[in-house]
Amino acid sequence: MSERKDLELIADLVPAGARVLDLGCGSGELLATLRDRKGCTGYGIEIADANVQACVKRGLNVVQLNLEEGLALFQDQSFDVVLQLDTLQHLRNAERMLLETARVGRIGIVSFPNFAHWANRLAVLGGRMPVTRALPYQWYDTPNIRVGTHADFGVLARRLGLTVTDSFGLQGGRLVRRWPNLLASMAVYRFENSAVIATTERSAG
């Protein structure tokens, strides 16, 4: 199952013992994996009742919250890692959430469907919106209100002053490092807040 492999590939990006905030944590599968295998701690944020209940059943800390309301609950730099997986494309205030992610965490890890994947390009070239595993909805019922590409995110990250420390694609449970904008249906970015890096370097120096 490629989703589980995707999950594990993303889990690999999280340092052991990290304090993690998972935005849109779903049923808590990744948080539970991080807790059980890597000794990570932290909280999940989730809006759906059934998912909150699933997290509670796993013994995770979960806070029921609409991400559109922002992260005012969380103090600056209070987490090692903030995860925002397959969530960004649903958010009206996606840009603000990225800044919030950088404010709250030292490291941000974001994943979203890459609209520039060749299969999507082909569909659009054929005059139709793509319906794929990563974008399984019809144009008229999709919850994805932000449609972007792997390359687009790089541009936005630069504009927001986020320092991208890694980026790659995910396709069929595999890491795609070569031409991810074309060859991967999911985009993954790991970034740090430049201002914070500068502060840390200053205090270290």
């Binding site: 909280y43 997290c55 800390n61 979960v62 029921q64 919250l65």
Partner: peptide, 11 residues
């Protein structure tokens, strides 16, 4: 959360 205490919240 400000104190990093273990907490869950459901609305």
């Amino acid at each position: 959360l400000d104190n990093g205490l273990a907490a869950s919240y459901a609305e």
